[in-house]
């Protein structure tokens, strides 16, 4: 069943069309990868879906409503969370505190109740337990009390995923989660993605690491200059001529030098 339905979304920056009449579906409980060369519009797509940027036209239907044009915090509260290509952690906060801010959408206590400490003990305790649970799910509980600024790069990505997961999303959008990870870290990321999916979240992942993409995704969407040039299961995408030309063709040669 389609959980998120993107239809005819277009975004222009001046003369550049970053996302061009793009339509695709994300099925509930699946892991979908979005690939394409740099500048293909992948991050822009995430920004449009999560309210960090405004689409010029089109719609993104999620749970019977349109996601586009809403504020980022509203999108999160509706159940679509994300991470960023450049991690946006709270550097002075510990891993546990970072994840605790992620629990925000499910908390009720405002200024008055917090100041007077009226009926917030259970809520605070549950929030802390939930944050600990998520740290364990991502296997980063040993970084619990370390501030983000002191956490190594590979783990920082996991902390950001944990924080996004803490918001209780139905759809989790991950922007290049494997960037900068070594082989072992990428493997444990793959395992974490399966755990998250089994936990009940549908995943859309923008990724350049083809090994990871081929391993975890059930479906791949290929973008080039804002357009969809292919969509399908990994095995078919690997053989697609348009994909090889647009994505693998020149880039692979350049990268191999």
């Amino acid at each position: 069943m389609s959980l998120l339905k993107v239809s005819h979304v277009t975004k222009r920056f001046g003369g550049l069309t970053a996302v061009d009449d793009l339509s695709f579906d994300v099925h509930e409980g699946s892991i979908k990868a979005v690939i394409g060369p740099n500048g293909a519009g992948k991050s822009t797509l995430f920004n449009l879906l999560t309210g960090f940027d405004r689409a010029d036209s089109g719609a993104a239907t999620f749970l019977g409503g349109d996601l586009l044009g809403r504020r980022p915090d509203t999108v999160v509260r509706r159940g679509v969370a994300r991470t960023f290509q450049n991690t946006q952690l709270f550097e002075e906060l510990t891993a546990h505190e970072n994840v605790l801010v992620g629990v925000e959408p499910s908390l009720r206590a405002g200024f008055v109740r917090s100041a007077l400490r009226i009926g917030i003990r259970a809520e605070e305790r549950d929030a802390r337990e939930r944050a600990d649970h998520i740290l364990r799910l991502l296997d980063i509980e040993r970084w619990r009390d370390v501030i983000a600024a002191d956490i190594p790069h590979g783990v920082r990505r996991s902390v950001e995923i944990a924080r996004a997961l803490a918001t209780g999303p139905q759809v989790l959008l991950l922007d290049e989660p494997a960037a900068g990870l070594n082989g072992a870290e990428t493997q444990s990321l793959a395992a974490a993605l399966y755990r998250i999916r089994d936990h009940g979240a549908t995943i859309v992942v923008v990724e350049h690491d083809m090994g990871l993409v081929m391993e975890v995704s059930e479906e791949i969407l290929v973008l080039d200059r804002g357009r969809k040039i292919a969509e399908g299961p990994p095995l078919l995408i690997q053989k697609d001529v348009a994909v090889i030309e647009a994505y693998l063709g020149e880039e692979v040669e350049d990268d191999d030098v």
């Binding site: 999560t50 309210g51 960090f52 504020r71 980022p72 915090d73 999160v76 509260r77 969370a81 994300r82 991470t83 960023f84 946006q88 952690l89 709270f90 550097e91 002075e92 906060l93 505190e97 970072n98 605790l100 801010v101 992620g102 925000e104 959408p105 908390l107 206590a109 405002g110 200024f111 917090s114 100041a115 007077l116 400490r117 917030i120 809520e123 605070e124 929030a127 983000a148 924080r163 996004a164 803490a166 918001t167």
Partner: peptide, 30 residues
């Protein structure tokens, strides 16, 4: 009262906002 605010939910959201406004928005902080 302020000590209670800073160690409760509003205080965490504030520290998040201080660290990264984008990150705070992505956590659902209004």
């Amino acid at each position: 009262l302020v000590a209670n605010i800073v160690r409760g939910r509003p205080g965490r959201a504030m520290r998040g906002l201080h660290g990264s406004e984008i990150g705070a928005l992505a956590c659902g902080v209004d």
